[in-house]
């Protein structure tokens, strides 16, 4: 098709060879490993702790944009900006989901401490964004009323 695709396919082939030889873990290309403990935690506090956001203090310098009411819990837009200096990472939680931790983001090399995405919410509850900055943890919360839950199906 084109050079890029060819190079990619070639790379993918080499990767597949390594994988089949058992030399490489499938996620080795990613610096982070998936934090199973944190994503499996069943309470907001346990998830915060396991994801490394324990003892977070509330901060007005984290801006969290969520709708007041979400008609469809399967797609709730969430947007967060941290104005705390030296923000290195940010995580989104939905308090009453079966597993409250939704996603964790690490910023580097010029990435702004900003992220917007769509999350699932099981029911009306708090959406929390937690931030790691300068060796400390911060957070802010906002409640979203969910008319139709997005987790059970």
């Amino acid at each position: 098709m084109n050079q890029m695709r060819r190079a990619f396919l070639k790379g993918a082939g080499a990767l597949a060879a390594l994988l089949s030889a058992g030399l490489l873990d499938p996620i080795a290309a990613f610096a982070a490993t998936w934090n199973k403990t944190a994503f499996s935690a069943k309470t907001l506090e346990d998830a915060m702790q396991a994801a490394g956001y324990g003892n977070a203090v509330e901060s007005p310098d984290i801006l969290l944009k969520v709708p007041d009411i979400a008609e469809d819990g399967a797609i709730v837009p969430v947007e967060a900006t941290s104005n705390i200096p030296d923000t290195v990472s940010m995580a989104f939680f939905s308090e009453k989901n079966p597993n409250p931790l939704v996603a964790d983001f690490t910023f580097s090399n010029g990435a702004e401490p900003f992220l917007a995405t769509h999350i699932k919410m099981a029911k009306t509850c708090i959406v929390r964004v937690a931030v790691k900055a300068g060796g400390k943890n911060y957070m802010t919360n906002k409640e979203v009323k969910v008319t139709l839950g997005g987790c059970g199906g």
């Binding site: 990613f30 610096a31 982070a32 998936w34 934090n35 994503f39 399967a74 797609i75 709730v76 947007e79 989104f92 939905s94 989901n97 597993n99 409250p100 931790l101 939704v102 996603a103 964790d104 983001f105 690490t106 910023f107 580097s108 990435a111 702004e112 900003f114 992220l115 917007a116 995405t117 769509h118 999350i119 699932k120 919410m121 997005g150 987790c151």
Partner: peptide
């Protein structure tokens, strides 16, 4: 940007950075 996602990210994931 490095991200870890759980099952709480919506179907057909969208993100903006």
């Amino acid at each position: 940007l490095e991200m870890q996602w759980g099952v709480g990210v919506s179907k057909n994931p969208y993100f903006n950075f």
